[in-house]
Design a protein around this nucleic acid. Structure first.
Lengths: 142, 142
DNA sequence: TACTATATAATAATGATTATCAATTATAAA
DNA sequence: TTTATAATTGATAATCATTATTATATAGTA
């Protein structure tokens, strides 16, 4: 099922279907967190011992260019990837690199309306995103 | 004057007064853009031919820890620094790495109120920041 | 099945940032 | 003012995430 949807997505974007691409896309789509390239590598190594880290980077880049996934700015110096296409915001755990998605249609609407009226001088708004900083109340890390 | 205020700030945070720190802080406080470590280096090299890039990184880190400046997440892979302590948001020029500050007290209040009532489950909000993506209508770059 | 362009794996290269450490300097005490 | 000492600086090596290179393998198509 998930395997299937990966193939559908790849096809839709005119990308060749390869086992590596299916596997990588599968991981991102199903993982709740925002994995780094290395996290993805660790997930897939058992099944694909020869999967190269370079392939993962290149594949992620291809996906990002097609709009299948998004790159996420991280507080540490490693890039993270986000398999969710719908508009959402990010919760940053201050201290650790943990980032989680936050959906809030009401918030979107309020900010959207505000900015629509406001009109920032010399700037055409295309999109916006909130970074919300704080602490997760469960244990916290990763 | 600006020279002076740098000294005041350093003193207030219990940091030793050195010519390098004064110069670096001066650049960040007076520059409107968000410089990278290398930009700062280029500004100061004429006056301080021996200023080491390592010193700049270490000094910026010290400043950030004291809350004098902030690190800014950038779309490219180079860190940028922000000399403004007051709450503000960022305008990202899609494509280039250009980032500018955006102040909007009205926006702050609206979002603040919304989030205060909303209460995100399992998360304690400390602060938030908007990333606004779009295009500058002047030439665009840098 | 064979052809051709694209993708992959392995590895080297890059570039930003950090670590190391000897020499220098700012501050506090004498 | 001089001295003592801990912090800072500069030079450079090391690190680590990401990108480039290139020979080999593979997907999609005729």
């Amino acid at each position: 099922m998930s395997n299937n949807s990966a193939i559908v997505i790849l096809t839709k974007h005119g990308l060749k279907i390869t086992p590596q691409r299916i596997a990588i896309l599968d991981v991102i789509l199903n993982l709740k967190e925002h994995p780094t390239a290395e996290t993805i590598c660790n997930y897939l190594r058992p099944g694909y011992p020869n999967l190269s880290i370079a392939t993962i980077y290149k594949t992620l880049d291809t996906f990002a260019q097609k709009g299948i996934i998004r790159k996420v700015l991280s507080e540490t110096d490693t890039m993270r990837y986000d398999g969710v296409a719908e508009k959402h915001h990010h919760l940053y755990n201050t201290g650790s690199g943990r980032i989680e998605d936050y959906y809030d249609e009401g918030l979107n609407k309020i900010v959207e309306n505000y900015l629509k009226n406001k009109k920032i001088p010399n700037f055409t708004i295309e999109d916006f995103k909130l970074q919300i900083f704080g602490k997760f109340r469960d244990n916290g890390n990763k």
